[in-house]
Simulated scan of single mutants.
Amino acid sequence: MGSLHERFSASGGSFHRVAQSLFFLMSLLCLFTGISSAIALMLGIILAVTLGNPCLEMAQKAISVLLRLSVIGLGFGMSVQQAIDASQNGFLLTVTSIVFTLVLGALTATRMGLTRHAGQLISSGTAICGGSAIAAVAPVIKASPRDISVALGVVFILNSVALIVFPPVGHWLSMTQEQFGLWSAIAIHDTSSVVGASASYGPEALAIATTVKLGRALWIIPLSLLMAVISGGNVRKISIPWFIGLFILAMLANSFIPGVEMFSDDIVEWSKRGLVLTLFLIGSTMTRDLLRSVGFMPMAYGIFLWVAIALSSLGLIMY
């Protein structure tokens, strides 16, 4: 017997209509029913693996826009003092973890059989902010489409695992919200899963994780400059994460402009729903083709770096 995907594919247009209907139905469920981030992600993965994603290109474009809008909206639920406190607590840990991950990655990539560019992309994604870091560094070092695809596949898969695994581990270790917020901001790859995991843990964890993670994302700029110097790349292709500036403006408005509090709760609520939809869309990109494209050694390398940064940062935070 063939796979579910193959049996549906035999019916041609009807398969596409079924898959498309399920895609939009699940999208609406994620946006309006209040399901958790982890469940939304799993729904996306199940759809992608069983039926495929009939709207893959649209989903990939929507992920970037929705994530940025959701993060900006979350700024209306935070105060400047919260951001200052979180930044002070997380700055040294951020710098230490970035340097540690990049150095460890550089020392082990070729030993594990990776190309130089694939190693640079995976270590950059692990050190800073997942897919955003990979997208920023790739044109600077002139990475090949194959290396970019592999790096994104590794980071997206591990990012999805982290969203599901981290909250239970945090509860098992009796971590405070502050501890969990710091840990998730340091050890989870993409901003989407950092916010999703910390939001399920509590409001303080969410505030700390979002602020520290966005501060971490700013390190894309010096990292890209460094990679350009090392690889002889094009400095003009360095991208700046502009949405972080809008997040700061939203936070300032929430802290200092009278009357903003009248609608800030609604903005934050819809931003969280937008994030849940974003995670469903991310899950829906985990197609069979993506999973096959990764390969064993790049995945092993990504797991090695991820476990190293997760355990070392956990030790620093807890002890």
Rank of each mutant, 00 (worst) to 15 (best):
L41S: 00
G44S: 06
I46Q: 00
L47Q: 13
L47W: 10
A48I: 04
A48W: 05
V49D: 07
T50I: 05
T50Y: 09
L51W: 09
G52C: 04
P54I: 06
Q60R: 15
K61I: 01
S64T: 15
S64L: 12
V65K: 14
V65F: 15
V65C: 00
V65G: 00
L66R: 11
L67S: 12
L67H: 05
R68S: 11
R68Y: 04
L69V: 13
L69I: 14
L69F: 07
S70D: 04
V71M: 10
I72N: 06
I72P: 01
I72W: 10
G73L: 09
L74K: 11
G75I: 07
F76P: 06
S79M: 07
S79R: 12
S79W: 06
V80A: 09
Q81R: 08
Q82S: 14
A83C: 13
I84K: 11
I84S: 07
I84P: 00
D85E: 10
A86K: 01
A86Y: 02
Q88C: 13
F91H: 03
F91K: 01
F91N: 02
V95E: 05
V95I: 15
T96K: 14
S97D: 10
F100S: 08
F100T: 11
F100P: 01
T101I: 11
V103W: 05
L104H: 04
G105P: 00
A106C: 12
A106N: 13
A106E: 14
A106Q: 13
L107D: 13
L107G: 10
L107T: 07
T108G: 00
T108R: 08
A109S: 14
T110R: 15
T110C: 09
R111E: 04
M112T: 07
G113E: 00
G113S: 04
G113L: 03
L114E: 03
T115I: 03
T115A: 05
T115K: 08
H117N: 15
H117A: 15
A118E: 15
A118F: 03
A118N: 11
G119C: 08
Q120I: 14
Q120Y: 11
Q120M: 15
L121K: 07
L121P: 01
I122Y: 03
I122F: 06
S123R: 15
S124I: 08
S124P: 01
T126G: 04
A127F: 11
A127K: 01
I128L: 06
I128H: 08
I128C: 03
I128D: 09
I128S: 06
I128Q: 09
C129Q: 07
G130F: 10
G130S: 07
G131E: 10
G131W: 09
S132E: 02
S132D: 06
A133V: 02
A133Q: 03
A133F: 11
A135I: 10
A136P: 04
A138Y: 01
P139E: 09
I141R: 04
A143G: 00
I148G: 03
A151V: 08
V155N: 10
V155A: 05
